[in-house]
């Protein structure tokens, strides 16, 4: 059976169809999930992607309202039980709001929306979503956000560094004021990963700056087949 990876569509999600496409290109079966679905088991998904966009218009705070969507209850429950979950951009914001990941994303320090191809260094190649990379590898994927400044208190940042939970760091200059150049992090178990840049936009030569983003999805598929 093909491995099924669900992609949640919230009102205001933008990159859900690109995320599904990336999963298909990587060889998986992409399953569209609706924010009102409460039953994740019925969909028989092995992993979940929370895509980029502006869920609920970014009202209140980015990701704050999506966090209370019916589907997030089983997603959080399954994530705590080890299911791979990837949050991209707005999805990362949702993961921070649910406290599956520590810290928060704040307004870019220069106040501008930024949209560019971004070089990143892979700092952790052992998570469910990065095992197809090598530690220290540099990748280029698009970055596009207005509220991508990663913040957490110093103790949390030290913990993340000490436990190897910083998964990606920005290279060529910090684009948004993120503490310690952090672009993406993981939870303790390594199954939940969130990042601001967009790997799903870099999966084929025709439409992406590179195909460097494909490794996220092939990593998860390999892990799920092996388990």
């Amino acid at each position: 059976m093909t491995t099924r990876i669900g992609v949640v569509t919230f009102p205001g999600s933008l990159d859900d169809s690109d995320a599904r496409r990336a999963i298909r290109i990587a060889g998986g079966e992409a399953v569209a999930l609706w924010h009102r679905d409460k039953d994740l088991r019925k969909q028989q998904v092995d992993a979940v992607v929370l895509p980029g966009g502006f869920s609920y218009g970014d009202y209140l705070r980015c990701g704050a309202i999506a966090r209370f969507s019916p589907i997030m209850e089983p997603v959080v429950e399954q994530a705590k039980a080890g299911m791979p979950v990837l949050g991209i951009c707005n999805g990362f914001q949702v993961l921070c709001e649910t406290h599956l990941l520590p810290g928060a994303l704040t307004r870019n320090d220069h106040l501008h929306f930024i949209c560019r191809d971004q070089r990143l260094r892979v700092e952790n190649d052992t998570t469910a979503w990065t095992s197809d990379y090598e530690r220290g590898q540099e990748i280029v994927v698009p970055l596009k956000n207005g509220e991508g400044g990663y913040v957490a208190d110093e103790r949390t940042l030290d913990e993340l560094e000490g436990e190897g939970r910083v998964v990606f760091r920005y290279l060529d200059g910090n684009p948004n004021g993120s503490r310690r150049d952090i672009a993406g992090i993981t939870n303790e178990a390594g199954n939940v990963v969130g990042l601001m840049p967009h790997p799903e936009h870099a999966v084929e030569a025709l439409t992406g700056p590179t195909t460097d983003g494909l490794g996220f999805f092939t990593s998860a598929l390999k892990k799920l087949v092996a388990s």
Binding site: T106, R107, N108, D109, H110, L111, G149, V151, D153, G177
Partner: peptide, 14 residues
């Protein structure tokens, strides 16, 4: 309100 130690670029712009 944002905590005092959190940068407030909007407030700064104002």
């Amino acid at each position: 309100m944002l905590k005092p130690e959190i940068l407030d670029p909007q407030g700064q712009a104002v």
